[in-house]
């Protein structure tokens, strides 16, 4: 088995590991770093459960090789939870019961947070479109759309006045 040595930043911590060349980012996070919040579900880039942030942009963790990430910055659900960056979005998910089994939730939150960074006033259709690559079998999506919409609204009304 071929391995590669990488040094990268994960949730603010610099980590150095030897990783199997074939290992994808999510297995690296889970097996090597014990970050179990990013979930493996389809492993072919369709379901979105493994969505994490790589150098500031969301990616499918199962379609990124860990070996390719020397020098990169990775943020996971654990990181954005600890930093408080998406606390309001998480609270909205709790209040609206926008998670049921919780398996899609970390990926869904990373994706929704990505939308809110670039679009402060998303319509419901825009929210649905942006999360349309994240599969949720439990909720039927409406509660998730509601929670994202509520968060956007709250951010606007509590943000700095123009």
């Amino acid at each position: 088995m071929t391995t590669n040595s990488i040094t990268l930043t994960v949730n603010g911590d610099q980590v150095r590991r030897d990783v199997p060349a074939r290992q994808h980012l999510i297995d690296f996070l889970r097996l090597d770093l014990g970050l179990m919040g990013s979930h493996v579900a389809c492993e072919h880039g369709v379901c979105g459960a493994c969505t994490v942030r790589l150098d500031g942009a969301i990616v499918r963790g199962c379609l990124v090789l860990a070996a390719s990430l020397h020098g990169s910055t990775v943020e996971t659900i654990e990181g954005v939870s600890d930093s408080g960056e998406i606390r309001d979005l998480q609270d909205a998910f709790i209040a609206r019961n926008a998670a049921q089994c919780g398996y899609c939730t970390p990926g869904m939150l990373m994706t929704a947070a990505d939308l809110l960074k670039s679009n402060a006033t998303p319509t419901r259709a825009e929210i649905r479109e942006h999360i349309s690559g994240n599969y949720c079998r439990c909720t039927g999506y409406q509660a998730i759309v509601d929670a994202v919409e509520t968060t956007a609204h709250k951010r606007r009304s509590s943000g700095p006045k123009p």
Partner: peptide
């Protein structure tokens, strides 16, 4: 083309 996370990569 697919979805944002795919298009980013």
């Amino acid at each position: 083309i697919a979805h944002t996370a795919i298009r980013n990569r």
